[in-house]
Amino acid sequence: MRSLPTGSAPSLAPLRDRIHAQAEGVVRACERKSAEEAAITLAEARRDADAITERAVQAGEAAARSDAAQRSARRRRAAHELDLAGRESLRREIEDRVVARARMLRTYPAYPRLLASLRERAREMLGPDAAIEEHPDGGVVAASGTRRLDLTLPALARAALGSPSEEVSALWMP
């Protein structure tokens, strides 16, 4: 390879300048394009990041709402059940008192008449051959073969309280 003749450098200066200018133009275009692409990529990444953040916030809010609703539901239920348990406790107390008062009917002057009507009722239900005995709690217990009838005063009191009537339930309802 031969070198350029001496003194040719000044003659090539315009060519060099032109090539240099063109190269700078290409570089600037590349830089511009890169900057644009970077801006687009950045904008897309920001959009994606915003969408991910929004989804995460929505999921978090939904989870928090669901958790809060669940906790609130359980507390409400506990309060509701406390109220119902109070009513049930009142019902049982009333039942105990009514049964106790029913047992006291044994001391009433009209008790023999009540006993006679219970014996009559037992015969109606089990037949005239039914064996009928007075029960220590008051009332009678009757039997005929394998059939038995409980007409004791506590059983009769519980049966009356077990009626589904709203008149009875008003005793323990608020």
Partner: peptide
Amino acid sequence: PSWAAGEPRVAHRD
């Protein structure tokens, strides 16, 4: 259940 109660019923043991 409360509605099962009401008037006394004959008990069968056979």
